[in-house]
Design a binder for these strands. Structure first.
Lengths: 250, 250
DNA sequence: CGGGGTGTTGAACATATTCAACAACTGTGG
DNA sequence: CCACAGTTGTTGAATATGTTCAACACCCCG
């Protein structure tokens, strides 16, 4: 796992101008406001930076495996990752996609409860759990922020349970596309022709469907003029209201 | 919502002898070690007790509705509750069952993200969120403990996603029965003839199945001598190993 | 070019659902 | 205490949604 090469970091569209106010790279971090770091002042950020390591992953690479020792917590700065659990016969459930600003490994206790794999080339900040724990004592704000983050993850998880347990294939795809579009917007990427970096197979394993069902359902949505399937895994949302109604199960 | 009548509280089997060391009812709480309170000393517990209110709910009663203002957080002391989300046409997903020592409303921000309804007659401690928040500043341990609890909830949620997205009906039922058995044991109730207080319909809505499928699957497990269906919603696990293998998808 | 991975489409199939009937149980009032 | 009504649970038959198996088109990337 190579150290971060700054020249290789893709800046996010909503990046703030590189701050001159502090020497710490964190102060200039484009996703600073989207993650834990938003709880901290510059000087506190310096302390956090002190225990930070950078890492990059090419697409397809595994960051950690389900069941391995959860010594580190990560924060994604660029790219997209997937988290998944496997059954012995290979059935896979992707429990979440990770976008810049999101945490990885938060839900784990002593061992990671899912495998984390890069969907696209990715860059991350890495924190040793034990060191982070010590910082909590110094900055309770940090732990407080982490509680908020974990609460938000719980909200997403509950929505996903509703999706997996009760929604039809069409409703699942609609929910998924809107989720991607909303997250893109939060990150300052275009919300409408939405980028769908993951494969049909990944989408299926996230939505509890097969590749074929994902493909067929997308085609039907295209045929009913709700979306347009473009090149490079781009999808245009032509009728957002219709998609939203579908997603909510109307 | 009546105040807790102490004469009406069913003591849990693993209750410790009523403590004489403190005047606070919390110090004598039978589930004290199972919940947030385990993070606190007696004198700190007194402070927590100061913002505590008691409540009871008969079975079938709703504690709060999805979407209503999340002003309170609750801790179940006796009974069993269910948390669920609804789709506009009435499809329901139960996102979790709540047992003594468990929290309700933790995942919520300004509004509750699920409805909470009593499965059996229940008793709870109620805390005003704003007051609890203030106690956090006084006892960071408390917030720390809450982070652990919410992390554990996240682990459960991820396992449930795997179940809902990828497991067969038989595997879901097996997982469910083992979960009930394990939780019962944690609480000091018998792990083997396991009490299943919720209806087939509730089980179905928790596992993403219909009542009929739950019923049929249970019958098949009975016919293959893995379980025995008793009266009063009791189920005996006859072949725990077989059940465990099923649950894991072997 | 050529080849593996990715995506689409078709046809047969399976698992779980839906609709329906009935049995068992619970609680309530006469 | 029993009778009755409503709820809960079980079972059967028909059905549907999504899966499986299979073939082929596409398209980057080598």
């Amino acid at each position: 796992m190579a150290e971060l090469d700054p020249g290789n970091v893709v800046r996010l569209p909503n990046a703030r101008p590189r701050a001159e106010r502090s020497g710490s790279p964190c102060a200039a971090c484009p996703i600073r406001d989207l993650t834990v770091c938003s709880a901290l002042e510059d000087w506190e950020l310096d302390r956090l930076n002190g225990i930070r390591m950078s890492a990059e992953l090419p697409h397809g690479a595994t960051l950690f495996d389900e069941g391995s020792d959860a010594d580190f917590v990560y924060n994604l700065t660029t790219g997209c990752m997937k988290l998944y659990k496997l059954l012995p016969d290979g059935r896979r459930q992707i429990t979440g996609f990770v976008f810049p600003g999101d945490f990885l490994g938060l839900a784990s206790a002593s061992e990671y409860i899912y495998t984390a794999e890069a969907v696209t080339d990715s860059a991350l900040c890495r924190f040793k759990r034990s060191k982070l724990q010590k910082l909590f004592e110094e900055f309770p704000k940090l732990e407080s922020r982490l509680l908020t983050i974990s609460r938000d993850e719980l909200v997403d998880a509950h929505n996903q349970m509703l999706l997996l347990g009760r929604k039809t294939a069409r409703e699942r795809i609609a929910s998924f596309l809107l989720m991607l579009s909303n997250r893109a917007e939060e990150l300052g990427f275009p919300a409408n022709p939405v980028s769908v970096p993951m494969s049909r197979n990944d989408i299926g394993d996230f939505l509890g469907l097969t590749t074929e069902t994902v493909s067929r359902t997308m085609t039907r949505l295209k045929n009913s003029d709700v979306i347009t399937l473009g090149a490079d895994r781009m999808i245009a949302i032509e009728d957002r209201d219709a998609l939203a109604e579908m997603a909510e199960g109307f």
